[in-house]
Each structure stands twice: as C-alpha cells, then as structure tokens.
Design a protein around this nucleic acid. Structure first.
Lengths: 343, 343
DNA sequence: ATGAAAGCGCTAACAG
DNA sequence: CTGTTAGCGCTTTCAT
C-alpha cells in the first residue's frame, strides 16, 4: 500500500484530457493564460480522476523560489519557544507558507548546520531565535541572500529586522511591581550580562529601584543559565544571603519556577514570605500557582509578528524584482504589558 | 544585501575548476564514480571559492525523493505536543532529515490541508498525531503511498504503525495511586469516550476501582474538551456534586491544571482537601505545584520512537526498491510508568 | 578517470 | 484559445 508508488504527472493528465501539458498548467495555476470553459472542465475531470497533485519540487525548481520558511530556535521544550513556533506557523499557514522546524539546541554549530540546510532547500526566508550572542548565522544568511528576521535579540553587524521585547521596561515593571508590594530587598536571577536582553532587564530593574530612592547595589544578582534547574540553584544562593531578599526577579519564567521550587524546598511560603516575578508569561505556570506573578510578554505575538515581517520582506523582494531597493532597517519594539498578578 | 542574488550553480563550479559538471557531482556526492585526487582538489577549491551550495530542490527532483518529514499535530501550545515535536526533530536531525511543522489546530480540515501540502512537497514520510477520530488523513496518505506513523491513536482501516501510550495502564495506575491515598470517591475528567485513548484510560481507571472492591459507577465522569479551560469547567461540575469527590483524575495535565485552578477558586486546598492526578507529565506544572501528581508518560520518547519507526520504514522502502515487500503492522506499546508524586 | 547527454516535472515565452 | 519548446539544477547512464 505504501510501496514507491509513482505519482501521476501533469503529462498523464494532459493525455487523458486530450490537451497539452501547458493547458493543464494554466488550469492548475488559474493562469497566466485563459482556458476555454469546456477545456478547463475536461482537465479538471482528468485531474480528479487521476488524483493528480502537482509536484511542488519541480514547480519550485522552475520558479526559483519556495514557500518554505525556516524557523531556527533553541528548543521547543521551553514553552516560550513552543509558543513562538506556534505563532510563526499560524501566520505561515495563513499566507500559504510552510515551516521547517530547526532546533539549535542552544548550539551555534547546529544553528550554522541548519542555515546551510535551509539555504540548500532554498527557503524563502528564515526566522531566527538566536541561541548565543554570535551573529555568524545572520551573516551567512545575508551572504546567501536569504531574508531573515531575528527574534528577541539584536545581531551586531547585521541589517536584519528584529522583533524585540522591551526588556528595559519589563525589568522596570517587575521591580516596580515588587516595590509596590513593599519589598525593599529584591534578588535578581539573570543571565550573563553580556547578553543584551539580560543586561536591559537588569538596567530597567535597577532604574526602578533608583527611582524609588533605593541603592541599586542593594539588589543582589546571581548570573547563570536559563533552565529551571539553573533558577533553582540561583535561588538557593539568594536565599542563603543575610539578610536574604524578600522577593526575586527572574530572567525568565522557567527560572522563576525553579526559584519557586527552591523556596518550597527551603520551607519558605510563597508569596507570604517570598514573592517571585518571572519575565515571561507561561500560562500554565501563571495559572497553576497563584503565587507566581509574571510580567506578561506576548510571545505568541512575537512569533506572529516575526513571520509577518519576514513574509512582507520576502514578498516585497519578489515583486520589486531587480529594482535596486535600498536596504532598510526595521526595528519593531514590543512592549511588555503591566505585570499581572494572577489571582 | 538580500536582493534576489542568484545562487551559484554546479556549472559555474565546473567551469572554474575546468571540469565537467558531472565531475563536480561526483566530488560533492563522493560517488558514485571515483575522482582523481588532483581533480577533486581543484573542484573543492572552486566550490570553496564560489561558496557553492548544491540546490536541494533540483537534487530531490532528480532523485525523486526528499529528506523532509511531515509532522502533523494539534498545537504546540500544549507542552505535550511541543515535547513530541522536539523528540521528532531530534531523531530527524540525527538521521539527516528535516521536519515540517504542521499544526492541525484540532481540525480535520487542516489535517487534510497539510496532507496535501506534504504530498505536494513529496515528503519522505509523515508523523501524525490525530486531532479527531477520523482516519481520513491516514487513508489519503496511504493512497499517495506516503509512509505514515500515527502517534497515540489507532486509526481504524489503516495499516500504519502506531506508537501508543498504555492508556489502560495509565488510568489504572492513576486510580491505584489515589486509592492508596485513601480516596474512595474520585471524579474523572475525560474526553468523549468515542476516543480510543480516553476510553482506555477510563477503563483502566474503573478496573482499579473494581479491583479495590468499589463500584465503578460511584466515580462521576465529566466528558469534555482538552484545554485548560475545559478542565476548569469540568472540575466545577464535579465539585458541585453531593457529595463531591475528594480526588480528581484528569485526562491530561492541561485539564488537571484547570481543575487545580477551579479548586483554588472554590477555596479548596489541594492536596489537603482534594487530590488531582493528570495523565501526562508537564514538568513545569509538576514542579510549580507540589500538589499536582502526574502519571508520567514519556512523550519526548513518543516523538523519538515515532520518528525512528518512520525513518526505518522510509529507508526500508527505499532499499527494497520494487521488491514486493509484504505489508507489516507494527504496534509499539509504550507503558506509562508509576505515578510520581512530585514532592 | 572523465565528458556528453538524457531526463526528473514543471512554467512561461514563443508560435501559431 | 492552445500546442511546442526551452530550460530550472541536478544525477547517472552512456560513451570515450
């Protein structure tokens, strides 16, 4: 039943309908030339009868373009990325594109691997959620002439449009939220500050402290990974300080959850004795534990916006043909909305 | 920088290297014919110099096969599916395949849409996580001769291999776990019983009750959706019964979390006054809320096993060429492991 | 050891 | 309105 059954081709359809292969194309593509209603009918019937399904490979080869989008991201295990993937696919579907899912698994090497694969497949464009601070993948894609949109990060030396969360504002809001709850000693779980967005979140965070008249240096920072387990470890460090913080701002929700876990293990009651705020918005987490408040970030929307931007780029490039379009840098800022205390 | 830059072709490489296009192929593919070391060197250098990257479209067209796998699943918003996707991509990567991510969004129509797209793209095989009880997508794929592996469901009328969780056992274990905790009145949040796996989970659940000497009919069942919100609504129904159950077994973790939320809203304390068990294993949930225990199910592994099975099928079909291989039905049972109470 | 050439299935310009 | 034909970039069987 699933032996290498040979697919029916356009020629067979043409033969059955008694027309030329070209005519079949005109019917299938609804153009570029008109077809007499009677002929069209015969062709459609032949297609139906044979179960003809045009070969996209041949079509793409001939057209010198595909409708495939590459999506490179670290790992859908992190619900944040899964949500981004979902957003990308939604838009791709709506606009007739298809998505190739590429996990970089937080490795530059694999990002580069997929850059090559996607170019080999002549992807129409790529959406890249960088795993490291290295811009090489973007450079390579630019070199290949493949349109690119970068998510959640700026890649120095690149012209590619970015979709960014407003990291500064997110950090600011997180601190503000905790300050309003009466906390004065707040610990931070960050990533290495070399990372632009981590740095921004911390900057925003400290700005809020300063504005409240608190010395930012009072806020202990633990720099580290990005996984749940990293958050747990970082929280242990923070809780052992004297005095320990009464609140924690975590770089992402995964680590916030890790912190929550650490708190539980240490016998702290959240949120009575310790408040925790994560930067992202993981619905399950938000719903599961009323103690966990999050600064909401529209990550589904990030995927959607990224895909939209990319497809606009792709299609513009297509229509503008060889007209020398001036490069343009487009920067989209997505703002975090106010912190939501999930009652 | 990303204008429709024309890609360098094999002919240009051949010209630069002063060899025939065929020779370039032999070098690139390392066969099927040997190439003199000196020639090979010149070709490699030309490739390097021009930044040549073979066009996979042309190659696939010629070869009449691709290394693209289709993955059709409801929605990566559900971490369960995200995890499956991750598993599939892992194996695909290892074996040199690429994954097309297709969200059916729980709709048969979209499943069929993607079946067509994937066939048009001549996908080497498809992994399908059905959204409904309808087998039509499987039938269509069989008709096209596209190898298929079905996840988590049997599709009547199909020969496709399935990767199944041991739903009966999972339900059994869930009930057993709750019985050991001393519960005697346990509510169920299920999906429509027409769905094989929901039915099985309930069957297993009731079998455990029976074995414990309890009348299964005492266990109230609410049938419904699959989302967090559905679980919340179902839990409200259960909690309003008199007497209300002291424990709840939910079809999946998303609904278990919804139930947890409902309990909170009603002022119940979990797990002191109400125990909740979800069938899946969502790490965040499990970690976030120590009250939530889950029957672990290796969903990453489900994706991995599915992809392995599929690729074996694909490659076997490739090698066996036109030899009339007898159809074979392969059924893999994945067992749920013991319930883990996430302390 | 290598070159020439025939397609893979399709689109679109060129001819009627 | 429709048929014929030249490729798209590649693999591989013929030849040499």
């Amino acid at each position: 039943m699933d032996l290498p059954k040979k697919a029916v081709t356009r020629n067979e359809v043409a033969q059955l309908a008694g027309v030329s292969p070209a005519t079949v194309s005109y019917v299938v593509n609804n153009g570029p030339r008109p077809v007499a209603p009677a002929t069209r009918q015969r062709v459609l019937q032949a297609i139906e009868q044979l179960g003809y399904q045009p070969n996209a490979l041949a079509r793409n080869l001939r057209l010198q373009r595909t409708s495939t989008l590459g999506l490179i991201l670290p790992d859908t295990h992190n619900p944040y990325f899964a949500e981004v993937a979902r957003g990308v696919e939604q838009i791709a579907f709506e606009r007739g594109y298809t998505v190739m899912l590429c996990h970089s698994d937080y490795s530059l090497e694999r990002e580069l691997h997929y850059v090559h694969v996607l170019y080999a497949e002549r992807a129409a464009g790529v959406i890249w959620f960088p795993a490291t601070a290295d811009s090489e993948p973007a450079l390579r894609l630019a070199d290949y002439g493949v349109p690119l949109v970068i998510l959640d990060r700026v890649a120095p030396g690149t012209q590619a449009p970015c979709v960014l969360a407003d990291n500064f504002r997110g950090g600011f809001l997180a601190a503000q939220h905790l300050l309003e709850l009466g906390h004065t000693r707040i610990g931070c779980i960050a990533r290495p500050l070399a990372l632009h967005h981590s740095q921004e979140r911390i900057r925003g965070f400290q700005a809020a402290l300063r504005q409240a008249g608190l010395p930012p240096d009072d806020a202990p920072i633990v720099k580290g990974g990005y996984r749940l387990e990293d958050g747990r470890a970082a929280a242990f460090q923070l809780l052992e300080l004297s005095p320990p913080p009464s609140a924690i701002f975590a770089y992402n929700d995964l680590m916030a959850i890790g912190a929550l876990r650490a708190a539980h293990e240490r016998g702290w009651h959240v949120p009575r004795e310790l408040s925790i705020v994560g930067f992202d918005d993981i619905p399950q987490a938000a719903f599961t534990c009323p103690a966990l408040t999050t600064v909401r970030q529209p990550k589904l929307d990030m995927g959607r916006r990224g895909a939209q931007l990319l497809l606009d780029l792709v299609e513009e490039q297509l229509s503008s043909a060889q007209a020398e379009v001036p490069l343009q840098v487009q920067l989209v800022i997505r703002e975090s909305t106010a912190p939501a205390n999930n009652k």
